[in-house]
Write a protein that binds this DNA or RNA. Structure first.
Length: 565
RNA sequence: CGGGGCGUAGCGUAGCUUGGUAGCGCGCUUGGUUCGGGACCAAGAGGUCGUGAGUUCAAAUCUCACCGCCCCGACCA
């Protein structure tokens, strides 16, 4: 491609709408343009890079034995009613109506469609396992689209769905996808880590997320360098360091005006936060519920949802709290509480000599022995793991870093196959629901994650595998009869003949403009051809972010091919 | 939806407090000089100042409503 014949609208200045580096570079390098919030047009260069990510995804999915299909983006609400997600996924749908006023939904995901297909087409264990995938536009009415392609209303996703006859077989399918994902991201030049994840509203038994570490990521990952434990903080566990003390008689003491953990740590009380019990009041499906945590710990709502088996809960209002405990927040406790369900975090098990609210405004209790003084209905892991806490596996301190979720693999089980009738006959002639897995990669998000990880002060530094063009030839004179341009065209044609994606910057611009643009867009290799070096029979080969190499003109093509190999 | 910020030419912005001819840089057009890291000179084109009401002799500027965008939180690939 000749630069003058394509469309690469680079920007010197950063559009005000962009906050993070990858979003700025997507706009500045002329890869995308915004139509409106959360909706973007891919320009020729951006589309080329996107297609390269897609190609890698397809190759690895095919290699893993998945079969490509293409499902409708427009879906009937009936299948969502069948699965039960018409209600639970309510918030994400874009809905449309046809001429007859019938409602349709734009697909946010395709479990319902694929399971309906399989229900009709597969009926014997002999036909399984099967794994279908597609690369398709998804529509989600995101609460808050942001960061360009990172979270958009419409985005390109690779989704795959596996169907198996047994748990063991399903685990094999899961592992295949898990491994394929690692290869996909590695080939895209993206550093990722697979972490244990919460399954959320999709449901299912377990899942892993592929996380691309980046300061601007929307997720936090807890991980251990010593044993390679890694989990989304929504899911991450840490070991408990037991705080025990001597058991003495309960004692109520006055704490006028003290309504925070923090205040109680100060003089004259001096009670360390990790010796306090934090009492939270939640309304769980309409029922008042107490949650107990150590004073220095934070509630993890994803874990709470998992423990409760429902996501229908909220912090109680002030009046509800007073009605239940006859005290206001800051003086709450669970000592002596009856008739209210109490959930306690594991870190409190066996705790003694603790301090907690007395359920009387202005008073706390000390010398609390949890086992002796509090009736706990359910013990569970309810706290958010924090950096420095001991790893559940090996006890070494956990670290926490931010990351971008680029892929997610789920072991689903039979939730959808049962509801939508994806049943098969086993060897004994017995009807069984297929065991499913589902697997997603945000293709557009992956592209942006690559840019977020691969850039410097001058622009993008593309991995060759996903660069829109791998080589940019920059002749400093573009007059057709000039030796510089003639050599440029010759090298251009030779590289094209070798199947290299090459762009020839034939614009009649000053060298500085061309160099800056090439750096901004970030082509992996730039071949500079100017009169000075050509006088010595040499051309410049400049890897993006690497050192320039002077080579004989006739060796340029083989040099470049060697570098790309 | 809650909290915060912002809408002025394709992009980045000044002007708004204290109402009175809409300004600058980049980009764009034409001509000339330049030509190895975002050139220079000259002449131009381009604006319903987000929209609608209101106050006023007069509104980018003051008031109200609405719309849109960005950031923080809940959601997710």
């Amino acid at each position: 491609m000749r630069w003058s014949q394509t469309f690469i609208p680079t920007l010197k200045e950063v559009p005000a709408e962009a906050e993070i580096i990858s979003h700025k570079l997507l706009l500045r390098a002329g890869l995308i343009r915004k139509l409106t919030g959360g909706l973007y047009t891919f320009l020729p260069l951006g589309l080329r890079a996107l297609r390269k990510v897609e190609k890698i995804v397809r190759e690895e999915m095919d290699r893993a034995g998945a079969l490509e299909v293409l499902m409708p983006a427009l879906q009937p609400p009936e299948i969502w009613q069948k699965s039960g997600r018409y209600e639970t996924a309510q918030g994400v749908f874009f809905k449309v109506r046809d001429k007859a006023k019938k409602e349709w939904v734009l697909g946010p995901t395709h479990e319902e469609v694929i399971t309906t297909l399989v229900a009709g087409e597969l009926s014997s264990y002999r036909q399984l396992p099967r794994n279908f995938y597609q690369v398709q536009t998804k529509f989600r009415d995101e609460i808050r689209p942001r960061f360009g392609l990172m979270r958009a209303k419409e985005f390109l996703m690779k989704d795959a769905y596996s169907f198996d006859i047994s748990e063991d077989a399903a685990n094999v399918s899961y592992k295949k996808m898990y491994d394929a994902y690692a290869r996909i991201f590695t080939r895209c030049g993206l550093k990722t880590m697979a972490v244990e994840a919460d399954t959320g509203v999709i449901g299912g038994k377990f899942s892993h997320e592929y996380m691309a570490p980046a300061e601007t990521g929307e997720n936090e990952v807890a991980y251990c360098d010593a044993c390679h434990y890694a989990a989304n903080v929504e899911k991450a566990a840490s070991r408990v360091t037991l705080k025990t003390g001597t058991t003495q008689a309960l004692e109520k003491f006055a704490t006028p005006g003290v309504v925070t953990i923090e205040a109680l740590t100060k003089a004259p009380f001096n009670v360390p936060a990790d010796e306090q019990i934090k009492t939270l009041v939640f309304m769980v499906e309409g029922k008042t519920t107490l949650l107990l945590l150590r004073g220095d710990h934070q509630l993890n709502e994803a874990k709470l949802a998992g423990t409760l088996g429902t996501a229908t809960f909220r912090p109680a209002e002030a009046e509800e709290i007073y009605t239940a405990l006859k005290a206001h927040p800051g003086s709450l406790g669970a000592v002596g509480v009856k008739d209210i369900t109490v959930y306690a975090d594991e870190s409190l098990r066996g705790m003694a000599d603790a301090t907690t609210g007395a359920n009387e405004d202005g008073f706390h209790l000390r010398h609390v022995d949890v086992a002796r003084d509090i009736v706990v209905h359910t013990w569970a892991d309810l706290r958010t793991a924090a950096a420095g806490e001991p790893c559940v596996n090996c006890g070494q301190p956990l670290k926490i870093r931010r990351a971008i979720e680029v892929g997610h693999v789920f072991k689903l089980g039979t939730k959808y196959s049962e509801k939508l009738g994806a049943l098969f006959l086993d060897e004994t002639g017995k009807q069984q629901p297929a065991i499913m897995g589902c697997y997603g990669i945000g293709v557009t998000r992956t592209l942006q994650a690559v840019i977020e990880q691969c850039n410097d002060k001058d622009g993008i530094v593309w991995p060759a595998s996903v660069a829109p063009y791998t080589v940019c030839i920059t002749p400093l004179s573009v007059a057709a009869e000039s030796p510089v341009m003639q050599l440029a065209v010759k090298i251009y044609e030779e590289l094209q003949a070798k199947g290299v994606d090459v762009i020839l910057d034939d614009r009649d611009d000053r060298p500085g403009v061309k160099f800056k643009d090439a750096d901004l867009v970030g082509f992996p290799i730039r071949i500079g051809i100017g009169e000075k070096s050509l006088a010595k029979g040499e051309v410049e080969i400049k890897p993006r972010g690497g050192a320039m190499l002077l080579v004989k003109a006739e060796e340029a093509v083989s040099q470049v091919l060697g570098q790309l190999a």
